[in-house]
């Protein structure tokens, strides 16, 4: 079994940024990523708010560069899913799908995944007209009408991309106002094939074999309405990928990891960073910063332990 000083679970911006710092602290570091390096941000088509870059960044390029940077300092990457962490006398045993590893300290940076709404029709149409990634799936709705549920940053950003393909977008937003960066709001409002339904709840995705439309309800008047659309993209927020951590570290009632300001969790030697942590804004720059905080705290913990 391979032994590491630090094992980082999750290869998004938080995990990879943390690994650069622990590796530069000359700690033998492994990042275990479930699918592909990048995390949720690679689903966006561009990043325009990462400080220091004057041109829009491709998220995959940014994360690939972060990975290369980490590898230059000796970080190893494994693609596998962590199933369980077991506390031992002097460190941790990490069990994955294929393997087992030992580490003296752990950083959890498992991020979050797109939440579902749970309305009737949603489950049966996932992959058949209900989608979570406009950059991936908007081409299937060329010259068609789509609904985007959720007018936050992700919803607006992905909608701007989807407009390269689709005929029109109907935004359904639960809150009475659009909750995206002002600059994104201005860009989407310039488009004439976009319509907003604010203070409105999605009730049902309607259709037999294919989506015929959605049923929505105005939360103030209670008035219900059917809108014809061919596809539904969901950007209704995220849920942390922390199921496998239940009973191991302290989570809040929604599953987010509870840490102190040093990113220490309820278990000694285990730190957490990024979107899976309670009270973090989901931004790449914050995830990276949060990863670095966790890394620096873990480095000093391991040094003091010697």
């Amino acid at each position: 079994m391979e032994k590491y000083d630090v094992i980082i679970i999750g290869g998004g911006p938080a995990g990879v940024a943390a690994s650069i710092y622990t590796a530069r602290g000359l700690l033998k570091t492994l990042v275990i990523e479930k699918t592909a390096v990048g995390g949720q941000i690679v689903l966006s088509d561009v990043i325009e708010n990462y400080p220091g870059f004057t041109k829009p960044l491709n998220p995959t390029d940014l994360l690939n560069d972060m990975q290369k940077q980490a590898e230059n300092f000796g970080v190893k990457f494994e693609f596998d899913e962590v199933k369980e962490i077991i506390k031992k006398d002097d460190g941790f045993l990490i069990k994955t799908d294929w393997d087992e590893y030992e580490a003296r300290g752990i950083i959890i940076a498992v991020g979050s995944s797109a939440k579902r709404t749970g309305v009737p029709g949603e489950e049966k149409f996932i992959g058949k007209g209900v989608a979570f990634c406009a950059t991936c799936d908007a081409p299937f709705f060329k010259d068609k009408d789509i609904a985007i549920i959720g007018a936050g940053n992700s919803g607006i950003q992905e909608g701007l991309f989807a407009l390269n393909f689709v005929r029109s977008i109907k935004y359904i937003e639960f809150l009475p106002k659009i909750n995206a960066e002002k600059i994104l709001q201005e860009r989407i409002k310039e488009k004439d094939n976009v319509e907003f339904f604010l203070n409105t709840q999605l009730m049902e995705i309607v259709g037999d074999n294919k989506i015929e439309g959605i049923r929505i309800k105005n939360r103030e008047s209670g008035e219900e309405k059917f809108i014809k659309v061919d596809g539904v993209f969901l950007f209704v927020g995220n849920a942390p990928n922390t199921n496998f951590l239940k009973g191991f570290i302290e989570l809040d009632e929604r599953g987010y990891i509870i840490t102190d300001y040093t990113k220490k969790t309820s278990v000694e030697g285990v730190y957490a960073a990024g979107d899976s942590v309670k009270n973090e804004y989901s931004q790449v720059v914050i995830a990276a910063g949060s990863g670095v905080t966790a890394a620096m705290s873990l480095i000093s913990y391991l040094e003091n332990k010697k």
Binding site: K34, T35, A36, F79, D80, E81, D97, W98, I126, G127, K128, G129, A131, C133, C136, D137, F140, G231
Partner: peptide, 25 residues
């Protein structure tokens, strides 16, 4: 093949699954 979301993998026209799943899966 009813593809509206990618990646979608179809094995021997009998088993199909969506997403970038881990190697073992």
């Amino acid at each position: 093949y009813n593809v509206y979301g990618v990646p979608k993998s179809i094995v021997n026209d009998s088993v199909e699954f969506e997403g970038a799943v881990p190697e073992k899966v």
